[in-house]
Design a protein around this nucleic acid. Structure first.
Lengths: 229, 229
DNA sequence: TGGTGTGAACAACTTCACAGCG
DNA sequence: CGCTGTGAAGTTGTTCACACCA
């Protein structure tokens, strides 16, 4: 293992490897080679080995990777060997969909609070065991329940205002679902999930499908078989 | 304009420029320089000029870009000068959140059908003016209403099965919200929106915040002023 | 004068190819 | 023998710097 800058893309891929490994673990597979994992994740096998090499040597030469061990290591690298406390802001359809999304708790992400400014929603008890709170209580509750990541699911025109409020709490990370570019001071980390950006790419590729090369970025290697192992 | 391969990242950024330009248009701004737009989008100004140069010369030297014109051109490039027909599959919380998401129609994306296999949901009329249909009608309705993009919002364990069905229709694009890697034959384009991948990146960055360089990938340049213009 | 458009330099990321080890 | 780990080569994407033009 050499010490060097870790590409953002590597971190993204680690997440994907982690999903794939969980899938394989469920199927009672014990060991996998970079080649097979690569085919599953549709990446280059050297890429996987390089990505892992940033953090250590987790494989067995001539054999491959022990899935249980590799999964543990990847989760440790990503910081998923702890529970993360999330607070959601904006309890519209999207807010409900996110808070109920069963995949979050499975990965160690726990919603511990929900906020909205609609008087009809405030006080409503959620199945998670806490009620919807007014925005005015954001700071207090953030401290109290140790919220680490704010998930913004408000309409676009409220999102920047909400982000400003978040920056006055100890929360340092924001996952933004509102379709607007948020601006925050240095020291905060914002990630943006914009559905229409993805749709735009899809539209672009569909519109230019036959025009040029028939390969799209998501289809570097064709899918071969459902049973890799 | 030179003819060459267009980076995927360029297409992604065009979407972001387009959002920013719409915002600026709303604020009755007529012209903007690459420098100012760059600050707004938190990218390098040369990047913007390069991105646009792949497709033509849209600026006025010494002045900048006429927002109305540039927006028109970007939308044309992305293939948004038409209405795209979407069908949603899986009408849980996420399905409802997506179909009601007001930003889609604004960008030319129209849901024209919804599918689910839950007998309690089938037949239910949606505010969009069509009912939830059973999956068995996917092919027929896809043809009839000319669905071009399928949005998959089913649980993870149903998503691959659904994707297989989609590949038997004329639909060529899939936007997948299920937290699983989908595999489709060549000729189809799948894009994946995985919330936990984004959260993982957030977790990684938050966990390593003070450790090394204080800059994160999302914060290349600090935000300076709310009034750029 | 001021800002675009662009070749050239640079930086980042990916893939190849193979040494080395279990 | 097979598969990892990794230097080196190759590819792709980004930034600089300035000619050129309204």
């Amino acid at each position: 293992m050499k010490f060097s800058k870790i590409p953002t893309a590597t971190i993204t891929r680690l997440s994907r490897y982690s999903r794939a490994l969980e899938e394989l673990e469920k199927q009672r597979v014990n060991v996998i080679s970079s080649e097979k994992l690569a085919r599953y994740c549709e990446v280059n096998s050297a890429q996987i080995r390089k990505d892992l090499a940033y953090f250590g040597e987790f494989g067995v030469r001539g054999v491959g990777y022990v899935i249980k061990e590799l999964l543990f290591e990847i989760k440790r690298i990503l910081g998923l060997n702890k529970v993360w406390h999330l607070g959601i802001i904006g309890m519209g359809n999207m807010g409900y969909a996110l808070i109920d999304h069963s995949n979050f708790p499975r990965q160690g992400y726990h919603f511990v609070a929900a906020f909205d400014n609609d008087p009809r929603k405030i006080g409503k008890m959620l199945s998670q065991g806490f009620p919807i709170s007014p925005m005015s209580e954001l700071e207090e509750i953030a401290l109290e329940r140790n919220i680490e990541i704010a998930v913004i699911a408000t309409p676009a025109d409220k999102a920047q205002e909400v982000a400003n409020l978040v920056t006055r709490t100890p929360i340092r990370g924001i996952l933004n679902f509102a379709p607007i570019q948020l601006h925050v001071p240095e020291g905060f980390i914002v990630h943006h999930i914009d559905f229409t950006v993805k749709l735009d790419r899809l539209a672009y590729l569909l519109g230019n499908m036959d025009a040029e090369s028939p390969k799209s970025s998501t289809m570097k290697s064709p899918w071969i078989s459902k049973h890799l192992l």
